[in-house]
Design a protein around this nucleic acid. Structure first.
Ligand code: FES
Ligand code: FES
Lengths: 141, 141
DNA sequence: GTTAAACTTGACTATTTTAGTAAGGTATAT
DNA sequence: ATATACCTTACTAAAATAGTCAAGTTTAAC
């Protein structure tokens, strides 16, 4: 059970942007250097973030990306769904009435995994980008 | 972010055992049929469960596996650590003082992932096998 | 004792997912 | 003009997952 780099990098990069002035765009090149993430990979991630209106882009030289909202308004769950980082704990299709083993009813552990999924998503709903950049004076980059 | 089959199957299989009388061993063959899990794969999983003293084996015909404790005493976290299903959200080595990008300090998102890990492990510590088999009258198998 | 059911072990493999790379664009500030 | 920076699609190497295979050993029951 682990987090993939897409979700992790998306949050890292957005937190990086959030630390700076909201009005001047931040280039992916800078983020790449500061956070140690491949530029090409970042482009892939930001394409999704832009389509989901988490950021908007400014083209041309000295362009880059700007958050569309205040950091406090951007929840982790928004970011994760934008980059397709989903939490999947059940083995079956949720909508279906069938269980994961093909049986006609849900398996004995189904409710447990479902609870776990809620538990995790709860965390992502509570946390926002603002929470990450509050302590600007910390020794983190 | 998803659960692997090892953790899921381990819990399913143990819940299956927990539903029956504690004193007569349950064979993997039966579990395999009821839960729709490959017998050979179950053997692999139960080897680990036995080594970690979650179950004990009874050999010979009409043998099988028995829980070593009451279902209420077997926490999900015990099961998961036995089958090496671990929660990994941070990208760095926790013990190290270095960050995930090789920088000298922890990255801006480190604390967030660490909190997430705690949040998830909390769930696994709170839930036990007993919780799963309480409603024996449900229409689950 | 024989047998068969059941556990035990270690190695091996196909599939899927992840984590990127590569290449070739297009838009625009200066 | 042109350099900077975004945009898009396609491809791929590496890792993890989800098993399978083969060849045992143990022991209850007949
Ligand atoms: S996880 Fe949904 S039926 Fe098993
Ligand atoms: S996750 Fe620990 S330093 Fe980035």
């Amino acid at each position: 059970m682990k987090l993939t780099t897409k979700g992790r990098y998306a949050v890292m990069a957005l937190a990086d942007i959030a630390k700076f002035d909201r009005n001047s765009p931040i280039s992916l090149r800078d983020i790449s250097l500061r956070q140690g993430i491949s530029l090409l990979y970042l482009e892939q991630i930001f394409s999704k973030l832009r389509k989901n209106e988490i950021v908007k882009s400014v083209r041309g030289s000295s362009g880059g990306y700007i958050l569309t909202k205040n950091p406090e308004q951007i929840k982790l769950s928004n970011i994760f769904s934008a980059v397709d980082e989903k939490v999947k704990t059940v083995n079956c299709k949720k909508e279906s009435k069938k269980g994961c083993n093909g049986k006609s009813s849900k398996c004995i552990t189904h409710n447990l995994w479902d609870e776990l999924e809620l538990h995790i998503n709860d965390f992502f709903n509570k946390k926002n980008l603002g929470d990450l950049v509050k302590g600007k004076n910390e020794n983190t980059i």
